[in-house]
Computed example of a mutant assay.
Amino acid sequence: MENSKTIDVLNDLLHITNDRIKGFERVEGKVWESYSDLKGEYDKMISQSKIMKNEIINLITERGGNADENTTSLAGNLHRTWIDIKNSLPVTNNDQETLENVIFGEKHAIEAYDNALKSGDLCSESSEVIANQLKQLRVSYNQFSNIERYKSKED
């Protein structure tokens, strides 16, 4: 197992985690007027993301690598730009679209984590940490994947 491959994969996951944090920061407070039941889970996702970020940074530095602490991915940047453009247009259910974008981002993160674990490029300690983080991502994805259920509670 090459240490440099582990560091590269971990930095890629760090970019994904930074994408999550940046994306979460863009969800406006008005969304929670329509989806108040999700607010606590959303706050939990933000806290988890910051913990995940620190865990990945620690794994990278323990292996002698340099963590790209504040770097995001090109795909994440493009996605956030697209969301900004869509949000600037008059849309009838902007709040639901915003949460659908959270779900899209979580799905992308899950795929990236799955690929990282399947790559065989992670050392055993890194694999264990990343597998635990993947479980957290799946839980948050499941929380947000049925938006209409939460909306119907509000009606």
Rank of each mutant, 00 (worst) to 15 (best):
L122T: 03
I46R: 12
T92P: 02
L13P: 12
E125L: 11
S145W: 06
L89K: 05
S36T: 15
M1Q: 05
S88H: 00
S119C: 07
E97Q: 08
I130C: 13
E25N: 15
C123R: 05
R149Y: 15
E100S: 13
D155W: 07
T71D: 14
N94V: 05
M45E: 02
D121R: 01
D37F: 15
Y35H: 05
E62I: 02
E2N: 12
D43S: 15
C123W: 06
G105R: 01
T61L: 10
W32C: 11
I60H: 03
L78S: 07
N58M: 02
N115F: 04
K50V: 06
E2L: 08
I21V: 03
M52T: 09
N132Y: 00
S36V: 14
N66E: 11
E154D: 12
V102I: 15
Q143P: 00
T98I: 07
K86P: 01
Y35W: 07
G23C: 07
E125M: 10
S127C: 11
L38I: 03
L137E: 11
E28W: 09
A109G: 03
S47W: 01
Y113K: 12
N77Y: 13
K118H: 10
S34I: 14
V91I: 01
Y42M: 09
A75N: 13
I103Q: 14
N87E: 06
W82P: 01
D43W: 07
